[in-house]
């Protein structure tokens, strides 16, 4: 009996995940969750659901598994809650990632040919090589904007997603906007794609050297949610 209940739960988890994947794929949410291609996700979800249906129809056990239907409903329902753009980062690393990874995942597709697109990674690499030569210089980078929250400073960053949102890593800089600039009250919303220019600074935070862009001017290139 316990084994039967466990099998029911496992099948329900499979049905729920497939529904979630299909809901995310057809709701335009997949790119913010995983780097897997849409056809691969859809094909695998349809295969799993088809096999699940065939297995239960063949064994004549569909009527004994109402949980499957609830799992499907829950999966599709929860897919509506998933974000259409990546969540803002919890924390931003201020050292360089690898070149191959940034080319593969970090750059938005439309900007790959843009020279500005690599500016953030170039700056991070220069800091890793010789931070003294960069600190104090004027810098201009592009990336995703996150407003200051819960005591954490505002940041400009890029997310490197290797496999899924859970393993994404944000790299970039803390930003201190220019307080003499009247436009500081009109800083963009989190998630906007921005260009930040200012002077590079270094400071010690919790025993770690963090790099920030001071007296920064922030220009919105694309608003949050637009792609």
């Amino acid at each position: 009996m316990a084994a039967h209940s466990l099998a029911c739960l496992k099948h329900a988890a499979l049905a729920c995940t497939c529904a979630l994947a299909l809901g995310a794929a057809f709701g335009g949410r997949l790119h913010s969750l995983t780097t897997e291609a849409l056809p691969a996700v859809v094909l695998s979800a349809v295969t799993c659901l088809g096999s699940l249906g065939r297995s239960h129809v063949r064994e004549r056990t569909v009527h004994r598994h109402p949980l499957l239907w609830w799992a499907l409903l829950a999966g599709f329902g929860f897919s509506a809650l998933l974000p259409r753009s990546p969540l803002p980062p919890l924390s931003v690393m201020t050292h360089a990632p690898d070149r191959m990874q940034q080319r593969r995942h970090a750059a938005p597709r439309r900007d790959r040919a843009d020279d500005d697109d690599a500016s953030l990674f170039d700056a991070l690499e220069r800091i890793d090589r010789d931070s003294a030569s960069v600190v104090g210089t004027w810098l201009q980078v592009t990336g995703t904007w996150t407003r200051a929250h819960d005591g954490a400073p505002a940041t400009v960053s890029r997310q490197i997603m290797t496999c899924c949102a859970a393993d994404s890593v944000a790299v970039g800089f803390d930003v201190t906007p220019d307080t003499t600039d009247a436009a500081v009250t009109e800083l963009p919303a989190s998630g906007a794609y921005v260009q930040v220019s200012g002077r590079m600074r270094a400071s010690m935070v919790d025993g770690e050297t963090r790099y920030s862009i001071g007296n920064a001017a922030v220009t919105t290139l694309r608003t949050a949610g637009s792609r």
């Binding site: 995310a24 969750l33 995983t34 691969a40 695998s44 919890l90 899924c164 949102a165």
Partner: peptide
């Protein structure tokens, strides 16, 4: 809670093609 749910869903969805390939 929301971020935790999104991360957990992203792991499950990202793994689905590989789980299917392995099972097949």
């Amino acid at each position: 809670v929301y971020r935790t749910s999104v991360y957990a869903c992203s792991i499950a969805i990202g793994a689905l093609p590989y789980v299917s390939a392995g099972a097949a």
